[in-house]
């Protein structure tokens, strides 16, 4: 299918983009375009204008200070995967990104784009929530920071306001006893997962001291399983117990890939898999 007609505007700076976006509520942000353009090509979307932010320099950096790594929203997945700070301090993100589509998509798709889009079956939204990252937005009123766990409201619904652009994601550098683990179950490499999990784990005296399980491809947004995490810290992993706890805590939804019951089962299996990963 061919895209419907729209206007194109290449933003010269973040401020420029914000100004344009605020003036035209039917305009959308174009970063990598790897989710937006397929939607346009299928005529699922008819924006008035595309505001291209992919070349704004301030959005294309990865920096680090003592406590955080900052990934600019227009950095491509490939660039993230080749970045020294990520290799040294957040290598699990590379494993996660290896599961995102395929190389040619990763060469264009952006970190911020994926997080702002919030596809429930995507890896990055769950990753930012599990990593306790902060989302940095900029709007007419200046900079605003929001916790990733407060960012996703529903199906493709995020906290981004009409005048705002996601500019940066701020990841806390992992403590020495902390690890982020990730796994997903898929039919074909690069597909949306049937179910996936990102787990933020802290170990103390060889036992799990802190656990945050976040599931994806299971509902309308990343699903944080707080009670399940607490149960595992207390009692360890048991298939039936964990499955029941997840069932009571979260409402999984069927999609074309797998039905809710299957996702529940897979989420339980995945939980065990990441815990086993941690043991090695």
């Amino acid at each position: 299918m061919k895209s419907p007609d729209f206007c194109y505007y290449e933003a010269l700076s973040i401020e420029d983009a914000i100004k344009f976006k605020s003036n035209d509520l039917e305009a959308v942000i174009l970063a990598g375009g790897q989710s937006l353009i397929p939607a346009l090509n299928m005529r699922l979307s008819s924006p008035s204008c595309l505001i291209d932010i992919s070349k704004i320099k301030e959005l294309k950096n990865i920096t680090k200070d003592n406590n955080f790594i900052y990934i600019g929203s227009a950095v491509t997945h490939s660039e993230v995967m080749q970045n020294k700070f990520i290799i040294d301090h957040l290598p699990v993100l590379i494993d996660v990104l290896n599961m995102v589509a395929h190389p040619a998509i990763r060469n264009k798709g952006t970190h911020g784009g994926s997080i702002a889009y919030g596809d429930p079956a995507a890896e990055l939204p769950a990753f930012v929530v599990a990593a306790n990252a902060e989302i940095i937005l900029m709007g007419l009123n200046g900079i605003r920071t929001i916790q990733a766990s407060d960012f996703y409201h529903g199906l493709f619904e995020t906290d981004i306001q009409d005048d705002e652009i996601l500019t940066c994601i701020k990841y806390p550098i992992l403590k020495n006893n902390q690890e982020i683990l990730f796994d997903e179950i898929y039919r074909r490499h690069g597909d949306y997962a049937m179910a996936g999990v990102v787990a933020n784990i802290e170990i103390l005296n060889n036992k799990i001291d802190n656990l945050k399980l976040v599931f994806f491809a299971t509902g309308t947004k990343p699903e944080v399983a707080l009670k399940t995490s607490e149960l595992i810290i207390k009692d360890g992993y048991d298939y039936s117990n964990v499955k029941n706890m997840i069932k009571n805590e979260l409402d999984f939804e069927s999609d074309l890939n797998s039905n809710a019951e299957m996702k529940l089962h897979l989420a339980t299996i995945l939980t065990n898999k990441v815990l086993k990963l941690m043991e090695t």
Binding site: Y8, E10, L30, G33, Q34, I37, P38, N41, L50, D52, S54, S78, P103, A104, I105, N107, K108
Partner: peptide, 15 residues
């Protein structure tokens, strides 16, 4: 220098 899907690049983006 990078492999991309030409169906997901707008011709307006290749300046």
């Amino acid at each position: 220098g990078k492999a991309v899907r030409s169906c997901l690049i707008l011709s307006s983006q290749i300046n």
